[in-house]
């Protein structure tokens, strides 16, 4: 451990705001890139299911 206390860890020697905002931005970009492709996939699959169901109905 490079810090003596949890308080010191949060403060980062006075640079806490810069460090923590950087990591927050990093988490934001990673989260967005996890969420966005999965949402796009769900939407395309839903559209495919709908059109397949439509074709099945028309065949009957």
């Amino acid at each position: 451990m490079s810090f003596d206390s949890f308080q010191a860890f949060l403060e980062m020697g006075g640079h806490g705001a810069y460090v923590w905002w950087s990591y927050a931005a990093g988490l934001g970009v990673l989260g967005y890139n996890l969420f966005r492709p999965l949402r796009a996939r769900r939407r395309v699959l839903d559209a495919l299911r709908r059109s397949a169901a439509q074709i099945l109905r028309e065949e009957r």
């Binding site: 980062m12 020697g13 006075g14 640079h15 810069y18 460090v19 990591y23 931005a25 990093g26």
Partner: peptide, 9 residues
């Protein structure tokens, strides 16, 4: 000091 930890992002 500790601002270099931004490097890991």
């Amino acid at each position: 000091g500790n601002s270099f930890r931004i490097m890991y992002v």
